[in-house]
Write a protein that binds this DNA or RNA. Structure first.
Lengths: 281, 281
DNA sequence: GCATCTTCTTTCATATTTGAAAATCCTGTT
DNA sequence: AACAGGATTTTCAAATATGAAAGAAGATGC
């Protein structure tokens, strides 16, 4: 061997070895059959090794060919790493902020609208302030009302329903957050309308949910959020005071930035999916 | 990135990264500077990443370029493996048989006459019989007498001296092998001439050596074999009865087979090296 | 300041590689 | 037996890549 064999030729050899012939390798790599024929012959000459037994029905790997294929298997991993490396740089992080149940919903279902090849990477950040979107500290907010500032752009998704849920019918009282943490409309509504029915509090929404599922009391949830918990049933009528339209909000100027555009479209599709978000009536 | 980047281009990138510029990489790879310029520009376009900061005095790796170079470092190992793989097939194993001390001497010093690019690979086999060479089961034997059969070819190397060695002057008695294992001339000589001076025995030559070094007794060694043990001194005069010429023996017909020819030449050179084999007088 | 050296980029003629088409050789089906 | 399909190799025109030469822009030394 006078010079190093071309790594591209070695990768083609690996494709031929795995496909069991030139035709399959041509389909897998996009190179033409005649090109593969020539490159394999040249590679054999360069290495000084018979890599194939050429039969009437195509190529069979020689023992030495099989060995070399084993040595080259890691080219797959290397290729994948380079691909990921390149993709990483071309994917923009899009910072998304939403309520706790909505964030959870998105995280659990994002695969419906997002792939590793997407133009954007979701990044969830904590923020409730429209000012953060205006300052470009947040790219997309999912809100419970139409944006009013002129530099924000909004797009309505669906109408959200709220209702009490419990482990079974007939459970009275409510579990809610401690008053220092009651920042959502549903928590505030409960304390404003039925403070005497609060039987216990928790320091996180998830803990409150666990208590409700344990049968301690009811919990007020957006209906879609309860869909993941078959052990909870709607224990009372919808709460019209809490029902609202949901809005996808972004900075007016950022809407045309391709990654943000892509993220807006994907999230809009996901949030409007009536099957995923409205399995209960 | 539409298609996978060429692995050859990635290897060129690595060369540029390591050389710190196109000129150095051109010297290292044999590709021309204009080609490298074009290929790096094309690679950047394909990956969608700025790999270099182009300055007045040449290329500087960007941070991303540095990262990618890190991902690609294993291409060196892969290249080396393919090279070795190709070489392996063109290297013949040459089976060599020699006495224990001579085998050890060759193993420790073979790098003086053998490289991974050599035509042959040394393989040490156990055998004392000239018949094995005749039968082609051994390619090269290192013997203590001239070959007598007509189908064997011999080449004299040097005259070997034998002497007693001990940890210090004044130590009497000898350490030797157990009589069932006394197959070498020195062991047989000792039992024939001074059986009463054997103070202890061991079941291997190496163990016997360790006992001598511990000060238990003297040991009879070829002089060259004692050179690796500065804690041993010659404790008596050379034993003329054991001194002999050393011969490199091979099958008459095999001498012209290139790998065997190469091995014979290399071993001849190594065994005749007076600095390595005769540091004591 | 000027000459020389170094490094990289671009142009252009030449060399090399590619894919479409044709040819060859099987195997399987009717 | 004839035909279709599959796999590979070879030929040839077109496409692509290459290296020599020229040019540009610094940096260095006298």
């Amino acid at each position: 061997m006078k010079e190093d064999a071309s790594l591209d030729d070695l990768a083609l050899f690996l494709a031929v070895a795995e496909a069991g012939g030139l035709s399959g390798a041509a389909r897998a790599t996009g190179a033409s059959v005649p090109t593969l024929s020539r490159r394999m012959t040249a590679l054999e000459a360069q290495l000084g090794i018979k890599l194939f037994a050429r039969g009437k029905r195509g190529y069979a790997l020689s023992a030495r060919g099989r060995e070399l294929a084993g040595e080259l298997a890691e080219l797959h991993a290397l290729r994948a790493r380079v691909r990921r490396f390149a993709l990483r740089d071309s994917q923009a992080r899009v910072r998304v902020t939403a309520g706790q149940w909505t964030s959870r919903f998105i995280a659990l279902n994002i695969a419906q609208v997002w792939t590793p090849e997407s133009l954007w990477l979701p990044e969830f950040v904590a923020s409730n302030a429209d000012a953060d979107i205006a300052r470009r500290e947040v790219d997309i907010g999912i809100r419970n009302r139409r944006p009013t500032q002129s530099w924000l752009a909004g797009r309505k998704t669906i109408h959200l329903r709220y209702a009490p849920f419990a482990r079974a019918q007939g459970i009275d009282g409510f579990v809610t957050l401690q008053s220092a943490q009651a920042t959502t409309p549903s928590e505030r509504w409960l304390r404003a309308t039925h403070p005497e029915r609060i039987v216990t509090t928790a320091n996180s929404a998830r803990l409150a949910l666990d208590l409700a599922r344990a049968g301690i009391g009811q919990i007020i949830l957006p209906v879609f959020a309860a869909t993941g918990y078959p052990d909870l049933v709607q224990s009372g009528p919808d709460i019209e005071a809490l029902a609202h339209d949901e809005w996808l909000v972004s900075h007016h100027d950022a809407r045309h930035d391709p990654p943000i555009r892509a993220a807006l479209d994907a999230l809009y599709q996901l949030l409007c999916d009536e099957t995923l978000r409205l399995t209960r009536s």
